[in-house]
Structure formats: structure tokens, C-alpha cells
Design a protein around this nucleic acid. Sequence first.
DNA 1: CAGCAGATTGACT
DNA 2: GTCAATCTGCTGC
Length: 201
Amino acid sequence: MTPTILPLSFYQRSDVVAISKELLGKTLLTEINGQLTGGTIVETEAYAGPEDKACHAYGNRRTKRTEPMFQAGGTCYIYTCYGIHLLLNIVTYIEGIPHAVLIRALEPTFGVEMMLKRRNKPKLDRTLTGGPGALSQALGITKDLSGQPLGTTIRIKDHGTAIASDNVMSSPRVGIAYAEEDALLPWRFRIKDNPWTSPAK
DNA sequence: CAGCAGATTGACT
DNA sequence: GTCAATCTGCTGC
């Protein structure tokens, strides 16, 4: 199987929900100081800018913080949450429309040793890349990478593994109670029965 | 094993 | 000053 890098046109479609689902099963890699780390994407979350109260850019709020989200699809948007956690997003759609996909969990496959070292963990377990904050730390992501295009330090590859829709579970997003009714939208996607996602509900 | 509090940085009102 | 798309560890049962 020859892995191919996803073309920009993949990200620049209007349906952020569809992109979120299709990113499941793809391989996310970072190369930092010559160290290649990453794994298979097993959990994502969709944020549809202007119409989504949960999104930082709701109502086209364009600020210094959300600026990268307004760039064209295929850009990274990295956000500091609660001061200590970095959250990795992939910007989608076209310039000026703040759509993004949050990467929530990976199944570690590349550079596991390196990721363990970064997370200061003795052995591989679900907490290595389970959750956006842990995931960013394991991949060595810093906010310097925010606003950068995919394809250099951060890459997503397609190994040809499509996830059948039967194997995609959707559920409400968490941690965004302030978003009111939009918090109930089932825009959190994960691969069914994959041990690297949080337990199925 | 469930539940809760603490950590800590940057941007917005 | 307050809030934010979270994780971890400690508590008590």
C-alpha cells in the first residue's frame, strides 16, 4: 500500500461534518527535529464556524486567536486550552469561512518510543494519545505550528483504509455546555469499538 | 471506580 | 477579571 498525502481539495469542501468522518482512519504524522511520530486518527469533532455556538469563531467573530481558522482549508489551527493543553485542529473549507475539525484521539503507530518519552510514560496505554491535550503533547506540537499549512511539519496521509459508515459512531460534544442547544449536535465522531477512543456510550 | 478540584496561559468584555 | 473545545491525580466508597 502506497500512502498518499491528502490533497488540499480534500479539506476545502464545504461539508465539515463529512470531512470529520472521512478523516477517521487516516494517518496523522508530525516531523519535529527529524523525529517522525503519529498514528491513525480514531476520534474527531466538527466545528462549523458561523453557525456553531460551540465554535470560537461563532457569528464570524474574527480575532487574533481565531485568525488561523479563517484561512483556507488545509491549515493548522492550534489553540491553548486551560493554559496547559494544546488542541490540534485542521482548518477546512475556504478562506474567510471558519470551519475546523478537532483531532481528539489517535491510535499510536509511528515513533511510539518518542511519544512515550514526550509524555514521560513508561509504557503504551490509552492515555498516551487519548484526548486532544495528551495527543498534542505526544506529537510534540507547539503553538508555533498554528497557522501553518499541512504537508510540512504536520501531514495527514491516506493509507486507503476507508471506515465503513457502520463503524462510525457519533455522539454529542463535551466540554461546551455554554453552547446551549448546539452542544447537543452529534458532531463528535469516533471509530466504533476502537480501544484508543474513549469507551463507547 | 466514580467524582471532584486544581493547574495555568492567552484573549475577550 | 473572567472564561476557555481538558487532563490528571487524589479522594472516598
